[in-house]
């Protein structure tokens, strides 16, 4: 059940008095941290970007407005977080994966479904996620890790809902292919 009304009330209070921002911070900190860490894969950077995200959210909370479908506080906050990540990637060169020597080999089995699931451990999946395109990573993380709705993700990524569905589909398909033993070039 979505307790949107409660969230609206907390956001409204925080807009009136910034000291009431803490419930939002307490609730969203683990989500924002997880999202940013999964994207940048570095604790120090994650801490910097998470701090920057919440500083900006607090500073601009009065500018946040509930505007129609898909525009939620979570969407707004993740938009800030995503912009931080994008800025970070603009500053640094692409990080190459595959240097650590990890390798995925598809096991010998006739059933393709089993083939994927037998091979893919959680660790493998975490590594393969890094090889997806940034938008695919964002869509999958926001959808399946942070639980945002399709329309909320559409607002964060500034795309329509159809495009987000396509991103999710292509992302999952790409994951399956890579877990089967495809290419592992980094796409960040």
């Amino acid at each position: 059940m979505l307790l949107e009304e409660k969230e609206r009330e907390i956001v409204y209070n925080a807009q009136k008095d910034p000291r009431s921002f803490t419930p939002l911070y307490d609730h969203y900190f683990p989500k924002v941290y997880n999202y940013i860490y999964r994207r940048v894969q570095n604790v120090q950077l994650t801490e910097d970007l998470v701090a920057e995200t919440f500083y900006k959210a607090l500073a601009n909370i009065n500018k946040f407005k509930w505007r129609g479908q898909g525009y939620s506080f979570a969407g707004w906050l993740f938009t800030i977080a995503r912009n931080q990540v994008i800025d970070q990637f603009r500053k640094q060169e692409p990080q190459l994966l595959g240097e650590s020597g990890w390798d995925l080999v598809a096991p010998e089995t006739d059933n393709p479904e089993d083939r994927v699931l037998q091979a893919a451990t959680r660790e493998d999946l975490l590594k393969v996620i890094q090889t997806l395109t940034p938008n695919q990573q964002d869509a999958l993380l926001l959808r399946f890790q942070e639980g945002l709705k399709i329309k909320e993700i559409a607002a964060v990524l500034d795309k329509n809902e159809g495009a987000i569905k396509a991103l999710l589909f292509r992302g999952l398909k790409s994951l399956r292919k890579k877990l089967e033993g495809g290419d592992y070039d980094a796409a960040v």
Partner: peptide
Amino acid sequence: ARELKKIASMFSDLPRAQS
């Protein structure tokens, strides 16, 4: 669709990064 759903399910069950 079934395969992709399983991948999605694995994705959802991934351990969360904790600070």
